[in-house]
Nucleic acid binder design. Structure first.
Length: 279
DNA sequence: AACAGCTTCAACCGCTGTCTT
DNA sequence: GAAGACAGCGGTTGAAGCTGT
């Protein structure tokens, strides 16, 4: 498989972005969208490679990015999702509206990893390895590989857990008022699409991006480009993050051997660090 | 005040997966 | 089916900021 020539070979700029570059990129995407990252910098007049533009946009310039410290709820969510998904930061990020995979990865390495016993985060790499381990198999298999299906199913499994409990990860704004009465309805109304926008966001996001590019209300379309949307955001606002999360089926049923193996750990972890006497 | 060591995080790198031809 | 092109992902790096001495 051919690789795109790297930007340094093209005389393109590297390093930190200037406010001017940011503005150019924002303005360009605002008016034209980002259908083709590779062509974008040229068309926008930026001396950057498409990769760099994409990263800057996704990790920093996107209007729906939530800046600032992670809440303890978000951190707990990351820990739990990491336990389930491993180092699949984009999958984790897809469940934390407004947070980027890069940000989550950084937070994990700088803060969260330290909270876990050493054994834990070494175990957590098991899911990560899968990508490379499967790569050779995947290369020779169908394009819609079984691996992909498996991962999707895995993630749907996670969604199931989240949906069933009705306590998805919490945006900082969500805790406000309304309680958690209509959680189930929300999820049912969405018919299985409730939170899992990852596939839409990542695999099918070209279509989304096309729509985005054509949309006059671009800036109001927060969360649209990858992992969520307004409706989702509102939904999250209606859902109160509760300690129910700690009663994930994953952690309380026999449906997952992983869950059972980790139950003691989570019990200890939660009771020590989260002051959850009800557990 | 000055320095060293540590931490954080934006950005880069290289790889894989998917789509197109 | 092969090969090229591209997007996306996770790992890693290094500059800047922070903290301790």
């Amino acid at each position: 498989m051919g690789r795109a020539p790297c930007c340094e070979k093209m005389g393109l700029k590297k390093g930190p972005w200037t406010p001017e570059e940011d503005q150019i990129l924002i303005n360009y995407i605002k008016t034209n969208g980002h259908n083709n990252w590779r062509a974008l910098p040229k068309q926008a007049g930026l001396l950057r490679c498409g990769k760099s533009c994409r990263l800057r946009w996704i990790n920093y310039l996107r209007p729906d990015i939530k800046r600032g410290n992670f809440t303890s709820e978000e951190e707990e969510t990351i820990i739990k999702l990491h336990e389930m998904l491993g180092n699949r930061w984009s999958a984790i990020a897809a469940r934390l509206p407004g947070r980027t995979d890069n940000e989550i990865k950084n937070v994990w390495h700088t803060h969260l990893k330290k909270r876990l016993p050493p054994q834990e985060h070494s175990n957590n790499n098991k899911n990560t390895k899968k990508r490379k381990n499967n790569s050779e198999i995947t290369k020779k298999s169908n394009k819609k590989s079984s691996k992909q299906k498996q991962e999707k199913e895995e993630e749907e499994g996670v969604e199931q857990h989240i949906k069933i409990e009705g306590t998805p990860m919490s945006p900082t704004t969500q805790c406000s008022s309304s309680g958690s009465t209509n959680i189930t309805n929300n999820n049912n109304n969405n018919g299985g699409e409730s939170i899992n926008n990852e596939d839409d966001g990542n695999n099918n996001n070209k279509d989304d991006d096309d729509n985005l590019a054509l949309d006059e209300d671009f800036w109001s379309e927060v969360l649209s480009s990858d992992n969520s949307n307004d409706e989702e955001a509102r939904k999250f606002e209606d859902i109160e993050f509760s300690d129910d999360l700690f009663q994930f089926p994953l952690f309380s049923s026999s449906s997952s051997s992983v869950a059972c193996d980790d139950l003691d750990f989570w019990y200890d972890f939660c009771s020590k660090s989260l002051e959850l006497p009800q557990l």
